[in-house]
């Protein structure tokens, strides 16, 4: 009817573009939030080994923040454009309807001309709004270029920091891991042994049916890790005994006094080499204590 389209725009496609931009902004905000958490107290990056990586990524986070601002501006421009375009298209639709009303009426030429002029003016506004939209995208492009220029070696720096961190971790593992794993195993064993207490007091029924009558010794004997406890206790006492018990020197040659006292109580004869030969021979008892003496 007008012979031209002063407000070309596809609102549906603008909705799609707006949604896509909104999702990108949300993803950026989430990423920036996660990156800004690095290095704070409680983070594994809060320490000399992780700090270089955290610093690099926080710097990257600041750049993402600039990109995020440009994207938000862009999104705002798209939303403004869509809203304006819809209003202008509605106004054009009214103009088209008015032009259709006066079509063929010879006395309304001036009115038709004014309507077409108004449509052209709307077209100019539309083009101006489009230029603003294009400018927002130009600024977005500039923000991306700035990131690229500012951090052309981000990948390289990250690589070097990661290699250093990996080496530090490997060194730590080589020195500390065996003992750490021994501690972890010990904890598991002690936990298993402590669990037996619950069964002793009747709370748990490890490996048996609840209510089944089982003696205390059976419970301990069948508990997970019980043989390790027994072994450990034996080892423990072997370690303790030599240091804790008085050393036998047999330096007092008291004519078999000890042997006699023992023989008074039970039929075991003790032979201490180098002592009174009057003491009965050990062989006669079938056993005894043999000391090396002096």
């Amino acid at each position: 009817m007008l012979g031209f389209d002063p407000t070309p725009s596809d609102p549906q496609r603008l909705v799609v573009l707006s949604d896509a931009l909104r999702k990108i902004v949300q993803a950026l905000v989430q990423s920036r939030t996660e990156l800004s958490r690095m290095g704070r107290t409680g983070s594994v990056w809060d320490g000399p080994a992780g700090a270089p990586i955290a610093t690099l990524l926080r710097r990257y986070s600041l750049q993402l923040s600039a990109l995020e601002e440009s994207l938000v501006d862009c999104l705002q421009a798209v939303d403004n454009w869509r809203e304006g375009a819809e209003q202008r298209q509605a106004q054009i639709a009214n103009i088209v309807a008015a032009v259709a009303d006066v079509a063929g009426d010879a006395g309304t030429e001036d009115r038709r001309t004014r309507l077409i002029a108004a449509a052209r003016e709307l077209g100019v506004d539309h083009d101006r709004a489009a230029a603003d939209l294009a400018l927002a995208f130009d600024e977005l492009s500039g923000a991306v270029e700035q990131i690229i220029r500012a951090d052309d070696d981000l990948a390289g720096e990250l690589h070097r920091a990661l290699v250093a961190l990996t080496a530090a971790i490997d060194d730590w593992i080589a020195a500390e891991a065996p003992e750490l794993l021994r501690t972890a195993i010990a904890l598991g064993e002690v936990a298993g042994l402590t669990t037996v207490i619950s069964e002793l007091v009747g709370i748990a029924a490890l490996g048996r049916n609840p209510g089944e009558a089982v003696g205390v010794s059976d419970i301990i004997a069948r508990s997970p890790g019980s043989h390790r406890l027994i072994k450990a206790l034996r080892r423990q006492w072997l370690d303790v005994a030599p240091a804790a018990l008085p050393e036998a020197t047999f330096s007092h040659r008291q004519s078999g006094g000890l042997a006699r006292r023992l023989s008074d109580r039970r039929p075991v004869h003790v032979e201490v080499a180098g002592t009174d030969s009057a003491a009965p021979p050990a062989a006669a008892s079938g056993g005894g204590l043999l000391g090396s003496g002096e």
Partner: peptide
């Protein structure tokens, strides 16, 4: 842990485990 760097101890222990 042979280090006061908590991050290193955690990352090292995690990898060892």
């Amino acid at each position: 842990t042979a280090t006061a760097d908590r991050g290193l101890a955690v990352m090292g222990a995690a990898e060892a485990m």
